[in-house]
Nucleic acid binder design. Structure first.
Ligand SMILES: [Mn+2]
Ligand SMILES: [Mn+2]
Ligand SMILES: [Mn+2]
Ligand SMILES: [Mn+2]
Lengths: 233, 233
DNA sequence: CTCTAAAATTAGTCGTGCCTAAAATTACCG
DNA sequence: CGGTAATTTTAGGCACGACTAATTTTAGAG
């Protein structure tokens, strides 16, 4: 298993993540270009390359997008494991805040050794979710698919726990942190403005109420119960 | 200050290290090629590039080698600071042994943020030497030049402390560790074989005596006293 | 001082990963 | 269906950092 470039690893990771987000189908060239911040033409080139590699990492059909092969998925999961373990480690061991970890992890994920991975996993007690609530794949590449629905879909009067938050926008994370909307916090939907208006959310513990815009609620996933793992702590 | 590639950083680091080892002069193309494991022609190309950069990072004269400019030296010292702090961190915080840290640090040194650097430095109490006895530059790029002479030059009957060890060969480091020849250990030269023969060295603490070949003694630096910092611990 | 071996540079290529502009294909609307 | 707009691919190029082979320059032995 020769060493893959950071670029290749990032493409595989992005394909995996988009596959997970938008149903099952193939991932489009544009979606990848958007996510990775590169030109569409660049994506086409890389997909051809990934699909020609031995072992083949993506199945790619001209004009019809791409899909990870088992080999490609394995690598994507390894990189994602690195990323999420590193995020945990930066918070636990080095005192980073949850809005700072993503950027650092995005570079470190490509250069740490398996040794490093194992040592921080041990040190952390083998966590199964990262600081934003995303599941951490096992060493062998198993990921538990987490339950949960977008906060946007919660009906007025329903209560739930914050179980996942998108980690790409540090400003959003800082904002949520300020409001006390952190992982595993229990909330209730109080009111929903008309015409896709703000969602009024109450924190059960503090009784504070906040009006959240669509931009915010779209990036929060909630679930009926806290994660199994969390319960044990 | 745009971001420099790992390649550029490694060249600057290598030039700095060779400058330090072999007197003051300019660093030859071959010496660099050897150290970096690349073809001579590649070095010529890179030196031209480094010397054409704004700000200029090396002074380079065709057929007469290269020398770091102050700007280049500053960057080299930053990378070396990263490298050595990471080595310390891997040992202290993650339980690596002194033969494992170099390889990992060689990749990490290029991707960690200043944030990361500061946090591990704090966590470690701002150490001034790395696990092999090499000095760690300050944030502002100051390095203390350390005293010490090659073990090879010690005369029979002389006693000294092991103060530095070359960190490039893991096998050598494991060997030394086995013999108890670790940093700050006090030793005495018992006997020197003829014709550059083995050096017989006694560990003061355990009274054990070991015969060391030239390959080994060339890579150990000793000094009359332990480092100031070490004394305080 | 001259000659030659070693050191270094030039010339020409390659793979990677990105870009823009132009052409092809698809998908969707009337 | 046909036509057009959006999507995607092709074509052509560029920067980077490596390589090999050929050539130039230096330095040192005699
Ligand atoms: Mn990444
Ligand atoms: Mn995350
Ligand atoms: Mn390096
Ligand atoms: Mn070291």
């Amino acid at each position: 298993m020769k060493t893959l470039s950071s670029a290749v690893e990032d493409y595989l990771k992005a394909i995996f993540e988009i596959q997970g987000e938008e149903g099952q189908g193939r991932v489009s060239t544009s979606a990848l270009a958007e996510r990775l911040g590169v030109a569409r033409a660049s994506v086409t080139g890389m997909l051809k390359k990934l699909s020609a590699m031995d072992p083949q990492l993506v199945r790619y059909e001209r004009y019809h997008g791409a899909k990870l092969t088992p080999a490609g998925e394995k690598i994507a999961l390894e990189v994602i494991r690195h990323h999420r373990l590193i995020e945990c480690y930066l918070m636990e061991a080095l005192g980073y805040s949850w809005d700072e970890v993503h950027l650092e992890a995005d570079r470190l994920e490509h250069v740490i050794s398996e040794e490093f991975e194992d040592r921080i996993a041990d040190m952390l007690g083998h966590p199964d979710i990262d600081p934003h609530g995303h599941p951490i794949p096992d060493r062998d590449g198993t990921v538990r698919e987490l339950e949960g629905i977008p906060l946007t879909q919660l009906r007025v009067g329903q209560q739930a726990y914050i179980s996942r938050v998108s980690d790409h926008d540090p400003a959003l994370l800082r904002y949520l942190d300020q409001l006390g909307l952190t992982l595993h916090v229990k909330i209730e939907v109080i009111e929903r403005g008309p015409f896709d208006g703000p969602l009024h959310v109450r924190l059960i513990s503090s009784d504070a109420v906040h009006a959240l815009g669509r931009q915010v609620t779209d990036h929060i996933i909630v679930s009926e119960r806290v994660s199994e793992r969390r319960k044990r702590l």
